[in-house]
């Protein structure tokens, strides 16, 4: 239907056919973030909790002199918090000009995947997950869910403080 599709059937594969993803793990599930959206990966230490904030927000942290809002991917996906989180990894993202740190269990390697390999979400995928996912890549031994960064960082905050 599009030229990109037509291209991929050709013999010469260009860079445009591939996308790179930073992989992260949450509760054993592997998820991918488009590499062009990831600014850095860092250890989230000394997080200042923000009372009255919505539950997805873990707090604020100082990343080289900038104040970054830490968002828990677990809570965004509706997974309960880890009981012991000694070294919390975070992926630095930008969304509408503001800096965020997405807290994950682990950060894995960077994968280069064919655009064509991206398949739509299974229809019975949990609505909460489906809303944050752009699709699924089938890797050899596991599945990789591609996250929609903007959707992950677009959540309701307007619940009025008591």
């Amino acid at each position: 239907m599009t030229s990109a599709n037509a291209n991929s059937h050709g013999t010469s594969k260009t860079v445009a056919d591939h996308l790179e993803y930073v992989t992260v793990t949450v509760q054993g599930q592997m998820l991918g973030l488009p590499i062009d959206r990831v600014h850095d990966v860092f250890v989230a230490a000394d997080i200042t909790t923000v009372p009255l904030a919505s539950s997805e927000i873990v707090g604020l942290l100082n990343l080289r002199g900038r104040v970054v809002t830490a968002v828990s991917l677990r809570r965004r996906l509706g997974i309960p918090d880890l009981v012991v989180a000694d070294r919390r990894m975070a992926v630095g993202l930008e969304h509408r000009g503001e800096s965020y740190g997405l807290l994950v269990d682990e950060v894995g390697e960077v994968l280069k995947l064919e655009i064509d390999g991206l398949q739509p979400n299974p229809v019975h995928l949990d609505a909460r997950w489906a809303g944050l996912s752009r699709g699924v890549h089938q890797l050899q031994d596991r599945l990789l869910i591609i996250l929609d960064v903007d959707a992950v960082l677009a959540f309701e905050t307007q619940k009025q403080a008591a």
Binding site: D46, L52, N62, G65
Partner: peptide, 21 residues
Amino acid sequence: SSKLRHIQLFSGNTILGDGAV
């Protein structure tokens, strides 16, 4: 952050001398 601006209790944040937010 725009995600926290609705909390009227806080007017902003800062980084203190010891690096804490």
